[in-house]
Design a protein around this nucleic acid. Structure first.
Lengths: 222, 222
DNA sequence: ATTATCTATAGATCTATAGATAATGC
DNA sequence: ATTATCTATAGATCTATAGATAATGC
């Protein structure tokens, strides 16, 4: 990688890294604030102070607050989706993928409350149409449908029902900090499998399977 | 009702009615704005203009924007709950009450889009813990549990799952205006009955029942 | 005379930018 | 020399209130 051929690179490496670091600090501060507060009612000043960055710097990275929120939420969804995929990589059965996804995401409320809070806020609005989580979940359901393993009916309705129920559980766990998240998530997984046509005993047996090692996957920082 | 005994009533009737009317105008304007916009990002000025009321008048009725939103959302939840109850008054079977509640609320997205939009925004946050809808839904589920008609498991988890799934459906219908709301709502009702242990064919038969006359009940304005 | 509403405005934000400073590359 | 960041500030909000006006009651 000699730069003899390019006497003036478009962006020197260190400067680029510095800029990236600042952008990351802003996004992570936004994620923190989104998780702490109820709503996206923060000011640019609060974000830059939380990120320990000069106020005006913000506008070198984003043109508006909304753009920053968008970035922070998309990143959170993408991170969670990548993590889930890395943990569930070995699974083949769509029913088990559904069960494990629900069980792990429910436990998220305890293992990574910040991510869980943000997912709750992003909520229904994007969970269904966004890149990241929704397409993968839809793929699992479709696979369940074509193989006959899950009786999904209309896949969009099935996704809305399963995703909404999962968010409802996360809301419940958020409101009741003393609740056993693992038990509740497993209960919901059984319920959703029943919803998609699996007999109760079979669903309970499937949900009794041990979870894949959750801590092992790629865990993007933040 | 002679007022001879009270030469100076605390609040003369007409003045009281005037104040009530103004308060109602403010709340209805808030409901409209909440339904139109994505979020509660409106200013007091916008609300008072939408209500056609002087700016300062606002502070004679509410001490903050949040108080107004709270009132507008609570009222919407309460109105919907009362309406549902009036329509479903004749039902005895908790399974059918669940089915009819889901089928009617799903259709709400078309019959009263404004109410549906507000329910979506209120969303999970209050739907589970609020007065109004949640306690009634919880009562139906508990009745289903004790009579053995529905296999709910933990009633809170069941409520979170059913309520979340219903909100997910409403979000889907909101995003896809061309979708057949009745078909989708009926599909969800079948799914939820299956989730609570009812055999598929029995659930389909139950959901094929005609709906109670929806336009008949008490329909509070707004 | 009393109460609700309206108009106008002070004071406190908050956004977006301009100009200065610091870091990096050559 | 170039680029990113920081500091300071102008201009545009927005909230909350004070004082004036209109409606109602007696």
């Amino acid at each position: 990688m000699t730069d003899a051929l390019d006497p003036q690179p478009a962006r020197p490496h260190r400067a680029l890294r510095r800029k990236t670091r600042t952008r990351t600090a802003l996004i992570e501060a936004a994620q923190r604030l989104l998780a702490e507060r109820n709503r996206a009612d923060m000011s640019v000043k609060e974000v830059t102070e939380a990120a320990d960055v000069g106020f005006g710097t913000f506008y070198g990275h984003f043109t508006s607050k909304e753009e920053l929120f968008e970035a922070a939420m998309s990143l959170t969804l993408e991170q969670h989706s990548v993590w889930l995929e890395s943990v569930m990589g070995g699974l083949q059965d769509p029913a088990e993928m559904l069960a494990v996804g629900v069980r792990l995401t429910g436990r998220l409320q305890r293992s990574r409350p910040q991510v869980a809070r943000i997912l709750l806020q992003v909520g229904l609005q994007r969970l269904l149409s966004s890149v990241g989580l929704a397409p993968r979940a839809r793929r699992v359901l479709r696979m369940g449908m074509v193989t006959g393993r899950l009786r999904t009916g209309d896949v969009d309705v099935a996704l809305a029902a399963a995703g909404g129920a999962l968010l409802g559980l996360m809301q419940l766990l958020d409101a009741e900090p003393h609740m056993d998240a693992g038990r509740a998530a497993d209960q919901l997984a059984v319920k959703l499998l029943c919803m998609f046509g699996m007999p109760y005993e079979e669903a309970e047996a499937l949900v009794a399977h041990p979870l894949p090692a959750a801590g092992r996957g790629v865990v993007p920082r933040a």
